[in-house]
Design a protein around this nucleic acid. Structure first.
Lengths: 355, 355
DNA sequence: TTGTAAGCGTTATCAA
DNA sequence: TTGATAACGCTTACAA
């Protein structure tokens, strides 16, 4: 409220002192046309006679006129702004690249991204929902399934188009662009098995969530297909972050009969795991082979270089964004699920088990 | 009372069937007050009689009313939105934490962050400036000195408050929050010198930019203070990214008389450098000691763990943001430069030189 | 193709 | 404390 009053007071002062911002009427007067013509010259140039259009544009330049966005939005009802909901601080190298895909695509289409870190959102969901319900958002991109929610309001109930990237938005019939989690996890697991590993540790993401459900399913499927017994399969619950890799590594070192192969569901966990067990005196891939998931660049600079699954991070972002823009335009009905493939990257952290 | 409730019920039914969004007039009618009272009840509750306020709030809930943001902005002239200009894709682990500081602080104050990746901005600066000049931005935070600019428009000319974080915004008299670059670089260098290194390689950031200028100055000052000769000091031009570390490492391996100590101006470069020279057969810190700059978490998981300078990343973000909010409120005149200290983190990548 | 004028949904002013 | 009402600056019927 303070802000509002100050702002108005300030504007008035500016006006009085002559440092006024040009408005459409000023341009109209300067160009000797009506405000309607100015508006058209700027938003639908084809509808204005060339000569007049020139006069208008010249006046615009001369007065340094920029249309007031709030007024335009109020009048048109479109905000050209997209809400991007980002998961807490997890895995910056991964998400930053996805975001770049989102950002580039949005910018190309003339949209602006409003970034909502789910972190700072805690207790602040309301503010965001005010924006959505306040008509200031044309759509939303949800990067990790988690949506801002209040007792009786949700982004979806607001009726704006939503697209999930990396995972479907929670409990929602919104289209999503995801990686082929299950097959990627199968590829990870199969690779270790083909190297000769028969006893495996799987370091999971938060259990119950979309990605984890599918990846674990892939892990199990590959293990079963190879005839591994349940007694040779272990699952350590992680959260994709370094700390989980450290914890898994510590637990691993203490195991009586250690697995020889480790399937991690994020590169961070894989990297922290390797570092931890190596410091405890184990060799990688000698005593334990490790395969990661994500394909962040760091994987190439750790010791040993990380064998992993590369996700098409940029494409996840850009593809999802294009989908949303189509939705907003009311174009084609989007497919419920767009699945992008991952790619196995062979480096040094996985090899044949010592016999 | 009865009348009000009936009225509410009726309106609610109408809305639900008509799928219209409630407006302030609907609430006013339902509560039996004027729109002015509704507005006050929501933005300045103290100015409304308790009993009436209750009636209004009840109607708001019943109608699921959320004020239209565009209208409010148009009327008040305040957008409660801050532009955050982020450098290209560089060093996600570093900037993501700075951004978290920004985001948390902004959210606390009820502001929303508009993220502009300088990457996608290329050729799109105009769009952003339209927003600024269109009155949709109350302030700007610039994360790396680079500002969107057009022939005749710039964020600063628009007259909104600007704050630089990590580096002062280019060519501008805007306040900034930075780390103590020079002293940190001196601390890096001095540490290597105290370990016994007399021949040093400095891997720079992009030459000419604020941080690099000051860090290099610190490097030189420490070297001179220790009486190192110019012939024993080398500078490799980098850009803070992995690729520079790789290039520096390759060049290093080829040197005839190699330095024994390496001062890197980013952790990514330090990490990539270590990895590169190790793969070429050199030992770290045996044959070459390396010290990084930033303090990202990855540094703890590489081999050997990276000795480095830790920047207070979150605080850089939050401090700068508080500064901006003060500026917007018109509070105290901000200091031109707020300098935060770094911290030397001792790990394993630097040791005494082999004699 | 152009101009006139009616809103878009708020909040601030002013009078009561 | 409250209500009527005039902006805020733009776009778009509608009429010419």
């Amino acid at each position: 409220m303070d802000g509002a009053e100050n702002s108005i007071a300030r504007t008035q002062r500016l006006r009085q002192s002559g440092a006024t911002k040009a408005r459409i009427g000023d341009v109209a007067r300067a160009a000797g046309v009506s405000t309607a013509t100015v508006s058209r010259a700027l938003t639908a140039p084809g509808m204005v006679q060339a000569e007049r259009r020139e006069r208008v544009l010249e006046a615009v330049r001369a007065l340094r006129y920029t249309p007031n966005v709030a007024a335009r939005r109020l009048r048109t009802g479109a905000s050209m702004t997209i809400l991007v909901v980002v998961p807490r601080r997890r895995n910056p190298p991964f998400f930053s690249e996805v975001l770049r895909g989102v950002d580039v695509e949005l910018a190309n289409a003339g949209y602006t991204a409003l970034l909502a870190n789910l972190d700072s959102l805690t207790g602040n969901e309301g503010r965001l929902l005010d924006l959505v319900y306040g008509g200031q958002l044309d759509g939303a991109i949800v990067l990790n399934g988690a949506l801002p929610l209040e007792d009786d309001r949700s982004i979806l109930a607001a009726g704006i188009p939503v697209v999930g990237i990396c995972a479907p938005a929670a409990d929602v019939a919104a289209p999503a662009v995801v990686i082929d989690d299950m097959n990627c996890a199968m590829a990870q697991t199969r690779y270790l098995i083909e190297l000769g590993h028969r006893r495996l540790l799987y370091i999971s993401g938060p259990i119950g969530y979309y990605n984890e459900v599918h990846r674990y399913r892939g892990f199990q499927a590959a293990a079963q297909a190879a005839g591994l017994s349940d007694g040779d399969l272990f699952r350590f619950e992680g959260n994709y972050e370094f700390s989980s890799g450290v914890a898994a590594g510590a637990a691993f070192v203490d195991m009586a009969r250690r697995p020889t192969g480790v399937v991690a569901t994020s590169d961070e966990m894989a990297i922290a795991f390797m570092s931890t067990v190596r410091r405890a005196g184990l060799t990688v891939p000698g005593e334990v082979s490790v395969i990661g998931f994500d394909g962040i660049e760091f994987g190439d600079f750790v010791e040993p270089a990380l064998t992993t699954i590369r996700q098409p991070r940029f494409e996840l972002g850009s593809t999802g964004t294009r989908l949303l823009l189509n939705l907003i335009r009311g174009d084609a009905p989007a497919p419920a699920l767009t699945v992008l493939p991952g790619q196995l990257i062979l480096r040094a952290s996985a090899g044949a088990p010592m016999s």
